[in-house]
Design a protein around this nucleic acid. Structure first.
Length: 662
DNA sequence: GTAGGGTTAG
């Protein structure tokens, strides 16, 4: 590279300015695949360098450049297309690169269109082209049309012998439940383990568990991938115990097996088990890579384990595992969910590569803590950086507005989302709006919105209104919706609980009883309320009326003490929070056995005065616990942070950060 | 010379 002139400043490329010899293809490629994957400006400079050094006509360089620009987090896939159009007579590698670029940027239809142009050009597709096309058909939901055609092309052009081509074909057909076609592709030619694994995966994704077992036990030679497919697939079907059995019986395990098992537990809400598997993984000295760490961070977030979460973070640091867009996001989300917005923010700031999801997680985290204004400020910053917010970003913003009572601002953002960013509102966004109006007590408008929204309201949307009816004591609307919701979603225990609460609040105990009978008839399993508290890395879990804890006696003694102290302070139990009709004094006892109160009592006796107490609850916090904890925070002079299913409550000196608005 | 895991919402 010739760089220096004496008069004007030299052309200065930060990565290669000290090169004295002409730059080679190899070093350009190495730039593209390392430094340029995290920085758009560096990529643009490298692009300039490629043009300047006359390497652009090299198809391999040009294709790689397309690939670099197609990195979804740069959000500039148009650059890939523009580049592509500047390449005369692209070869198959260039075609494959642009087809993949479109696919990676969520434009699979364009991938298919480009394929038809490719077919008309001099370049013939190769074995790398077809797997991409099958995936594009899956994503474009056009398996029946283009998918079948491409399958024909594969046969005609003689690529059915390639196991990766067939494997992608199997996945494509299985994705829409066309298992017969998938099986035909699988059975083509001789046995191949790649296709075998894809077929197992396809069966399990379609819920055909018996068929998956049949194939798995058919006596052919399996590899780790086959066992892995069973582990993840079974867990995905909700059969996490069976997945565990397969995992235990595996002849050998690789990193995918371990992370599959951890994810499997996570997805089934068994976060404690997920963490146990992770600890076993460490014990067995399996090399931990960042893939696993992000799952584990998410498990820590769900189980409420701050100490373990910090351990993960430290582990990453000590093992030089970079906080990339995904792991960083998982960690910051974890800290936010563990009540440590400060640490979440540190991670967010330190991330070199922030994905849109990282911003989403940070905005969502602020929303969860009731920091509506900060969430909006961060969104504005995101706009300044010309990042394109997505649907989830607006879910976060609308939630922030709902929890902060900013009704008008919420609606402004809802409009902005469509007009400025072209994001189509989903049923989730409407759910947020209903929540927004409902919390603010504007129930009639919320109801009106449900009737006029452009899609069928999901049970969650009705649930938001029902929740609002409960908080604002609107029995008329609440009763109608409650009944309808139960009809719509008869297995969801939470719905019965809400309706029952509404009746109880109105003192209609006969109706409360009816709800209970209906629940029995419909054989509904309610989710047991569970509260956890993390003490020195050990998770203590409490259910309602729990007496399993080794210090149960002391805990209940503490509860007795709390009752006396709180009642002196004028606290009155909210007995309408009890689900069923029992005697009034019994109701109070039941309230005092709520899991969050037990956890706090345990926290009070096990930590020194002044230490903040952090409790995580799997359901929404009940109104009675909320008002009791406010008083506890004042009487015992403790900061108490309760995370419930939806948000954080920071109690201090008799007040809660949610301003009783949740 | 090109593939395959992980995060955010619900």
């Amino acid at each position: 590279m010739t760089t220096t002139t004496t008069t004007s400043p030299p052309y200065h490329h930060p990565l290669t300015s000290n090169l004295t010899h002409p730059i080679s293809q190899k070093s350009l490629l190495s730039l593209l695949t390392t430094k340029c994957t995290t920085s758009l400006p560096l990529l643009q400079q490298t692009h300039a360098l490629i043009l300047k050094t006359n390497h652009f006509h090299d198809h391999f360089i040009a294709g790689s450049l397309i690939k670099s620009y197609s990195n979804p987090h740069f959000n500039c896939s148009t650059s890939s297309l523009q580049l592509f159009h500047q390449i005369p007579n692209p070869n198959v590698f260039v075609w494959n690169s642009i087809i993949k670029a479109c696919f990676d940027n969520k434009n699979p239809c364009l991938s298919l269109l480009l394929y038809s142009q490719m077919a008309a050009s001099n370049s013939k597709p190769n074995k790398f082209t077809y797997p991409l096309l099958f995936k594009a058909c899956t994503a474009a939901k056009s398996v029946h049309q283009e998918g079948v055609q491409i399958h024909c092309h594969v046969v005609k052009n003689g690529f059915m012998g390639d196991e990766y081509v067939r494997s992608a074909g199997i996945q494509m057909y299985a994705s829409i439940g066309r298992l017969i076609e998938a099986r035909m592709v699988h059975d083509f030619g001789g046995f191949d383990v790649v296709c075998f694994n894809a077929m197992i995966d396809g069966y399990l994704k379609s819920g055909e568990i018996e068929s998956a077992w049949g194939l798995f036990d058919s006596g052919v030679e399996k590899n780790v991938g086959s066992w892995n497919a069973m582990v993840s697939g079974l867990a995905e079907c909700g059969m996490v115990e069976d997945a565990r059995k397969v995992f235990d019986e595996m002849p050998e395990r690789d990193e995918v097996s371990w992370s599959g098992m951890i994810d499997g537990y996570n997805k089934n809400g068994c976060c404690k088990e997920a963490l146990e598997v992770f600890r076993a993984m460490i014990r067995e000295k399996v090399r931990v890579k960042k893939f696993v760490l992000s799952s584990v961070a998410s498990a820590c977030a769900n189980v409420g384990s701050l100490d373990q979460g910090k351990w993960i973070h430290r582990y990453a640091r000590e093992n030089s595992i970079e906080l990339d867009g995904v792991l960083g996001t998982a960690l910051l989300d974890m800290y936010a969910k563990l009540g440590r917005l400060d640490l979440a923010w540190d991670v967010f700031e330190s991330m070199k590569t922030k994905h849109v999801s990282s911003w989403n997680a940070m905005i969502g985290g602020l929303a969860m803590h009731g920091r509506a204004k900060d969430a909006i400020e961060l969104f504005v910053e995101m706009e300044k950086q010309r990042l394109k917010p997505v649907d989830i970003t607006f879910v976060g913003i609308l939630n922030a507005c709902a929890h902060g009572g900013l009704v008008d601002v919420g609606f402004e953002y809802f409009a902005r989302m469509q007009e400025v960013y072209g994001v189509e509102p989903t049923v989730h966004h409407y759910g947020c709006l209903v929540d927004l109006l409902g919390r603010a007590g504007r129930l009639a408008e919320a109801e009106e919105l449900i009737y006029t929204m452009p899609m069928t309201p999901s049970p969650a949307v009705w649930g938001a209104l029902l929740g609002a009816c409960r908080v604002h004591g609107n029995i008329e609307i609440g009763e109608i919706i409650g009944k309808m919701l139960i009809e719509l979603d008869p297995k969801n225990g939470g719905r019965y609980a809400l309706l029952s609460n509404i009746y109880a609040k109105a003192g209609r105990w006969d109706d409360v009883k009816k709800v209970r009978t209906l629940m029995k008839e419909n054989d509904v399993k309610t989710t047991t309320g569970r509260s956890t508290i993390d003490l020195d890395g050990i998770i203590h879990e409490f259910k309602i009326g729990d007496s399993d804890h080794p210090r149960a006696r002391e805990i209940y003694e503490m509860v007795e003490e709390m009752i006396v102290k709180l009642e002196l302070e004028g606290y009155v139990p909210k007995t309408s929070e009890v689900l069923f009709d029992i005697e009034e004094d019994e109701k109070e006892t039941t309230l005092w056995r709520h899991s969050e109160k037990l956890a706090i009592a345990f926290g009070l006796i096990s930590t020194s005065p002044g230490t903040p107490i952090r409790v995580t609850k799997n359901l929404r916090i009940c109104e009675d616990c909320h008002s009791a904890i406010k008083v506890v925070s004042r009487v015992y002079e403790r900061d108490i942070v309760v995370r419930d299913r939806l948000r954080f409550h920071h109690f201090r000196n008799g007040k809660c950060s949610c301003k009783d608005f949740w």
